[in-house]
Design a protein around this nucleic acid. Structure first.
Lengths: 187, 187
DNA sequence: TTCCTTTTTTGACAATTGTCAAAAGAAAGG
DNA sequence: CCTTTCTTTTGACAATTGTCAAAAAAGGAA
């Protein structure tokens, strides 16, 4: 749980009381490669913190799997739309490597908010940071070529390339696998 | 201020104490067409609520103005990256129609959070809803053609088409003005 | 190792979208 | 009303990316 504590502190330090309450509520989840944390049609009831391993979020469109994010160590993970709106989502979260997560349910989290304002503040701040990241991604997709997006990914997240298959990276970048393969070959 | 109150209530009702404190802190801003709320290189210190009028956010790339959002009545407006990170942003917010806004500064808002947890919760919830919208937009850009994105915009926000010029809509959709013009002509 | 499966690369061609330039149309100011 | 400016449309062509199909390479299991 140390990884989570230091990750949290990086965003917004919380009181020892809040940390105690949170850590009592968290449940550890060990989940093997190729299993699913969430599947489409389900309401996502949990927010996860990924301590070790690797996940991907994808949905299915015209029979194809469209990957739109990856999760690595120290990422917060959930099927955001479903978790927030409390409605069934279209997202699948697949485990790409044997993973260790910490889990908290929607209800438990909201109960904690009532007693620990600093926890709610923490979540607000994390949300804001994740919003900024998403905004950057939209900008990149909107105004850069596939090659530029790939080069940007290599700079900011070279670890992705070592752990994720080409087809899934292509899908994440919003291009076909063949295009990505060609980008890589004729550097 | 009624519009703001009812907008807020729609997201998350707040106590009368919180509303009183908030409404005392808000400042009304009247700003004419073609002026700027924020310009690039500035730190954005304010969060706005747009009561009446119309704005756009854009930045400059290779000498071109790239519009990436529009604001209409009942929208919360800020240069998000700059407001949150407290760093200079690259965003300009231009007033497209004479507008009436309510304004609160970063510091004032954070002070209010310390006294009114329900206000912080409100902001957290609004952030979450705006995150979901952004996610939808990224998905649309990633996996739909320009024509599909245009048709989706016509369905969900037909009012945009009546108030915003074609070039700016094209930029928002991430396509050239000529392409959008052609999409419209050969229905 | 050898076989089998999955992933990546390559080729040929088509579809989508962008760029540049010019014309047509609409809006704003005097 | 006319002139000027800004916006939208159209044409021609180029660049980017997608699709389908097949080959090559890499990875896993027995």
């Amino acid at each position: 749980m140390n990884a989570l504590y230091s990750c949290i502190s990086h965003y917004h330090p919380i009181s020892s009381g809040a940390w105690e309450a949170l850590s009592k509520t968290l449940k550890q989840v060990e989940i093997p490669r190729n299993s699913f944390l969430i599947q489409e049609g389900m309401v996502c009831n949990n927010l996860y913190f990924l301590e070790q391993g690797c996940l991907r979020g994808y949905y299915t469109l015209d029979g194809k799997e469209i990957t739109y994010w990856f999760g690595f160590e120290n990422n917060f993970i959930t099927s955001f739309y479903s978790f927030i709106s409390r409605k069934p989502g279209i997202e699948n979260i697949q485990v790409l490597e044997d993973s260790t997560l910490w889990s908290i349910s929607f209800d438990a989290l909201n109960k904690l908010f009532d007693f620990h304002q600093d926890l709610e503040r923490l979540v607000r701040i994390i949300n804001e940071q994740y919003y900024i990241r998403l905004e950057e991604r939209l900008m990149a997709k909107q105004f850069k070529t596939a090659r530029e997006r790939y080069e940007q990914l290599m700079e900011t997240s070279p670890h992705i390339l070592q752990r994720i298959s080409l087809g899934q990276i292509a899908s994440y970048l919003g291009i076909s696998q063949e295009t990505l393969s060609r980008i890589r070959s004729n550097v």
